[in-house]
Amino acid sequence: MFTALLIEQLLNGLQLGVMLFLMAAGLTLIFGVMGLINLAHGSLYMIGAFACATVAAATGSFWIGLIASLAAAAGVGAIIEVAVIRRLYDRDHLDQVLATFALILILSEGARWLFGSFPLYLDIPPLLQGAVPLPGGGQYQLYRLAIIGVGIAVAIGLYLLISRTRLGMRIRAGESDREMIGALGVDIGTLYTVVFALGAALAGLAGALVGALQSVQVGMGEPVLILAFVVIVIGGIGSIKGALVGAVIVGVVDTMGRFLLPSLLALTMPASQATTIGAALASMLIYVVMALILAFRPSGLFSAQS
């Protein structure tokens, strides 16, 4: 039974890591190409979740809601880039932080006005309901396995997009020398809008997928945004490969820490204290890992070209 529970928690950590990758990939792509610190990325995650829940409730189809989440997040992202972000590229990072923090407040209150203060709930589609057997006698939720599969597929798709397409070539050139590709005739404004919308769509996809596992509510993106920043710092700012590796590290360390630390501490102290202290230590663990990695590799595990 312990083996099945251990495998289940490892899969939970991988599922959390995949969700963080969807968030962090867009965030690191935006920073790598535009040099922009976007604190409003978590709000795009929230928008994707609300769009999916609302459209799924109206149509009775989770899949239509999933498409709506991509379209809504990408559309809002494109509008934000054109209306607000475009004016921040040449500004100091402090100005970017203040402006995108203001966007968090605006989008949160806008969501509260549109959808109310009460949480929405998104049902798992019938195709992905049920569980699959695990070694040792346990079972694992099929929908969570599907999230892992989606994350792997997105990672492969992003790799092919960045390394094998003309758009990817322009994105990589924009990371290296944006002035040069502008001089060669590439429309920098359009490229930035496309990159920002792509990053927003990935965040919206993450929000929609997680919306079926938890309630959809205002402010749900901010805690995830903090973890996404930890991921890109660990993996290397601007690196998609680093975002994937960093996300898996954070997801597994966080999940296994919450699973194992209380049990280990219970060997030396009362169970109630072990649970409280173990939970507190587990919440710190990913930041300890980040500090250790940065102590030996200050720029993260991978370079921006990875």
Rank of each mutant, 00 (worst) to 15 (best):
Q141W: 00
L158Q: 01
T165D: 12
Y143Q: 07
G151Y: 01
A155E: 08
T165I: 13
G151V: 02
V154Q: 06
L158W: 01
I156V: 15
G151W: 00
A153E: 07
L161T: 06
Y140D: 03
Q139C: 01
R144V: 01
V154H: 07
Y143H: 08
Y140Q: 05
A155K: 09
L167P: 03
R144Q: 11
R144I: 03
L142Q: 09
G151R: 00
R164W: 05
Y143R: 07
I148S: 03
A146F: 15
G157K: 11
Q141T: 09
I156L: 15
I156F: 15
L158C: 04
R144G: 00
L160F: 15
L160R: 14
G136A: 10
A153C: 13
L158I: 11
Y159Q: 13
A146R: 00
L161Q: 05
G168L: 11
A153Q: 07
A153K: 08
L160V: 14
I148Y: 06
R164N: 07
L142G: 01
L167F: 14
G137P: 04
A146I: 02
L160C: 11
G149I: 09
I152N: 01
G137I: 06
L145K: 02
G138W: 03
Y143W: 13
A153T: 13
I147H: 01
L160M: 14
L167C: 08
I147A: 04
G136K: 09
L158Y: 02
G138T: 05
T165V: 12
Y159W: 15
G138H: 05
L160W: 14
G151H: 01
G149A: 14
G157R: 11
V154I: 15
L145E: 03
V154P: 02
G138E: 04
L145R: 01
A153G: 13
I152S: 03
G157D: 10
L142W: 05
L160H: 12
G136C: 10
Q141Y: 05
R166K: 15
G138Y: 04
A155W: 15
R144C: 03
L161N: 03
